[in-house]
Amino acid sequence: MTRTLLTGGSGFIAAHILEALLKRGHSVVTTVRSKEKAEQIKTSHPGVSKENLDFVIVPDLSAPNAFDQAVVSDPPFEAVIHTASPFHFRVQDVKKDLLDPSINGTVGLLEAVKNNAPSVKRVVVTSSGAAILDFSKPHTYTFTDADWNNMTWEEATSNPINAYRASKVFSEKAAWDFVEKNKPHYSLTSINPPMVYGPIVHHIKDLDGLNTSNERIRDIAFGKVKDSCPFTGIFLWVDVRDLALAHVLAIEKLEAAGQRFLLSPGQYSNKDIVECIREAFPELRDGLPTGDALKPGDFPPTGWYGYDNTKSKEVLGISYRPLKECIVDTVNSLKVFVK
Rank of each mutant, 00 (worst) to 15 (best):
T2G: 00
S10E: 01
I13H: 04
E19I: 10
L22I: 15
S27H: 07
V29R: 15
V29M: 07
K35I: 14
E39R: 05
E39M: 10
I41G: 05
G47T: 12
G47H: 11
V58Y: 05
N65Q: 12
A66V: 00
D74T: 14
P75H: 14
P75A: 04
H82L: 05
A84G: 05
S85H: 02
F89S: 13
R90I: 07
K95F: 11
S102H: 04
G105L: 00
V107L: 08
V113N: 11
N116K: 15
N116W: 14
P118L: 15
V125S: 08
S127D: 10
A131N: 01
L133S: 09
S136K: 15
P138S: 14
W148M: 01
M151S: 07
E155L: 03
P160T: 14
Y164R: 06
R165F: 02
V169L: 08
K173G: 03
A174V: 02
A174R: 06
K183P: 01
L188W: 03
S190V: 12
I200C: 00
V201D: 12
D206A: 06
D206C: 06
S213P: 02
R216C: 11
I220D: 08
G233M: 11
F235K: 07
W237Q: 04
R241C: 09
L243G: 04
L254A: 12
A257G: 12
G258I: 04
R260V: 03
L262M: 12
L262K: 11
G266L: 13
N270K: 07
D272Q: 12
V274T: 02
E279R: 15
E283Y: 10
L284D: 04
D286E: 15
G306P: 03
S312C: 12
L316N: 11
I327S: 02
S333M: 03
L334F: 04
